[in-house]
Amino acid sequence: MTSFTLAEIRERTYKKRDAWWTVFLVDPLAAPLVKWTANRTNITPNQITFGAGVLGAGSAVCFALGSWPWLVAGALLFHLSFVLDCMDGKIARLKGNGSVFGAWVDFIFDRIRFFGCMLALLIGQWAATGEVVYLLLMPVVTFLDLLRYLNGAQVAKTRASMRDKLRAATLGQTVDAGVDDPESTEAANGGGAAAAAPESADPEPAPVVFMEEVLRENPDLSAEEVRSSTQGARVIDVHQGFSARFGWYDRLRGALLRSRVRPHLFSGIEFEMFVCVLAPLTAVTAAFSALPSLIVPVTIASCAALLVFELVIIYKLWLATRDFGTELRRIEASRPTGA
């Protein structure tokens, strides 16, 4: 039987940057559980995923019952289900026994758990109180959760498309200044209409380093440190416009990353936890005081916070597309005559 230490688990399974809810409220509990599970059992990641699904179903049942003791129980079960959801990936990375299908199952169970618990919570409260606002919140929460998934995927693809085009341009290929449909991979392959190989051989171009790729792998570095450590390479940064407008962002980012917290402070994880953990836990205050239930205000505040951060991501992407165009023109202007 293997013997993994907590230090080894943190080194091999912790992400370099993560949601603050995971860093402070999940990992401290998940790491000891991973240690015990990995060292003393042969439980697989898929079995842990199934266990998370069972706890999620129990959470939904508790939420549907509506009274405050059941709401508290549902919130605790939802959080524990999320802890197990984090554990399956850590076990897979630690033991190397993950699978592509397992990753798909993990994603599907995660979405089913959230939607099932969210619907059970809001429908249960509508049944208990008769207030229509709970029913009105259901499509809003659903829309925003789908929006952040679609937006995240498309933003990532658009950024990848810009990097592919800039990389192709530095190799002397002819590149269309417009960003392709993110589904297209022609730029990545260096062919098709997006790029054409140069007819004449030019001197070997300098290697290309993308600032966002380096910072993703080394989140503790600053932009200045990246430039000073990549001498001889062409450093491309398509987020200069954002940094110029918000100089405090890099300082905030550095402060957060020292604790592994990513600057995206209200992501999908916080959204789920606020709706399905924090909101139902507030039922305790309504049960023992004259205060009204805070489930609706907390849910509305969560929706607003998620929307604000998604709009910031879109704004940052828009500025990046402008920097992309500027950088592309700069690369083309630096080519030798006749290239």
Results as ranks from 00 to 15, higher is better:
residue 131 E to C: 00
residue 118 M to E: 07
residue 238 V to W: 02
residue 65 L to F: 08
residue 304 A to T: 09
residue 33 L to V: 06
residue 15 K to F: 08
residue 90 K to M: 13
residue 317 L to W: 04
residue 132 V to P: 00
residue 277 V to K: 01
residue 56 G to Y: 04
residue 198 P to N: 14
residue 64 A to G: 08
residue 145 D to Q: 12
residue 227 R to P: 06
residue 304 A to D: 03
residue 115 F to S: 01
residue 191 G to P: 00
residue 177 A to E: 15
residue 201 A to H: 08
residue 160 A to I: 03
residue 278 L to G: 00
residue 199 E to N: 11
residue 126 W to Y: 15
residue 141 V to S: 03
residue 172 G to T: 02
residue 114 F to R: 04
residue 135 L to R: 08
residue 100 V to W: 00
residue 34 V to P: 01
residue 104 W to M: 10
residue 210 F to Q: 07
residue 92 A to L: 03
residue 116 G to Q: 06
residue 16 K to T: 06
residue 230 T to N: 15
residue 131 E to A: 14
residue 70 W to R: 05
residue 97 N to K: 06
residue 73 A to Y: 03
residue 310 E to W: 00
residue 37 T to V: 14
residue 138 M to Y: 06
residue 21 W to R: 00
residue 126 W to Q: 06
residue 192 G to R: 07
residue 16 K to C: 02
residue 53 G to V: 01
residue 152 G to R: 10
residue 224 E to S: 13
residue 293 S to W: 05
residue 51 G to T: 01
residue 242 F to A: 09
residue 282 T to W: 07
residue 339 A to V: 13
residue 315 Y to M: 05
residue 197 A to M: 11
residue 95 K to S: 04
residue 185 T to S: 09
residue 307 L to K: 02
residue 156 A to Q: 10
residue 337 T to S: 11
residue 227 R to C: 12
residue 103 A to C: 00
residue 184 S to C: 13
residue 332 E to D: 15
residue 219 P to G: 03
residue 34 V to H: 00
residue 110 D to Y: 01
residue 60 A to L: 08
residue 282 T to C: 10
residue 190 G to T: 14
residue 62 C to V: 02
residue 79 H to E: 13
residue 164 D to F: 07
residue 205 P to N: 13
residue 69 P to R: 09
residue 230 T to E: 12
residue 100 V to H: 00
residue 313 I to E: 11
residue 324 F to G: 04
residue 177 A to G: 10
residue 325 G to V: 13
residue 242 F to N: 03
residue 73 A to G: 14
residue 106 D to S: 00
residue 297 P to N: 03
residue 322 R to G: 14
residue 194 A to Y: 05
residue 187 A to F: 06
residue 331 I to T: 14
residue 30 A to Y: 01
residue 246 F to K: 10
